[in-house]
Amino acid sequence: MGQWPPADDDALLRELGEALRDPGPPPEEFLAAGYAAFSWRTVDAELALAELTFDSACDPEPAGMTRSAGSARALAFHAGPVVVAIEVTGTGIVGQISPARSGRVLVRTPRGPYEEVPVDAVGFFSLGPPPSGPVQLHARTSDYAVATSWVSLR
């Protein structure tokens, strides 16, 4: 192998560019967070996944959608016929599940349960401000139980 570092300035500059674009090994805490995600694989295996289908923060608004306030962030999650729709403002979350049933909604973070509230007979619920980082909602009624996709709400 040749002399290293290269005596030629252009060659050294090129290698420096490659080195700076290559960020090196990932920080340990990032790997640890990736490993830890696996513990969620079976935790709620009985819950159907309600996938994130709309987020006003980054998706174009569907036609005919009604929202209570322009400043609210609206999200919708679907699991077959079940829809979980929420609006997030600075003061908290209001949401509705449909088909309308009474039940419970739980907010979870990767560290565990965060807040649990009742759902009224027409499917409405309200929660305090969400924690930072990814969260997941669990909605359980007598007819169905779903867990939403993980998403950062603020």
Partner: peptide, 26 residues
């Protein structure tokens, strides 16, 4: 991480995105 870096997020946001992506993959 290379995709996250190209979006120039701070470290907290980078960690949140990274965690979200692996939770989604699960």
């Amino acid at each position: 991480l290379s995709v996250i870096r190209s979006h120039r997020l701070n470290r907290t946001d980078a960690a949140d995105v990274h965690q979200t992506v692996w939770l989604r993959l699960v």
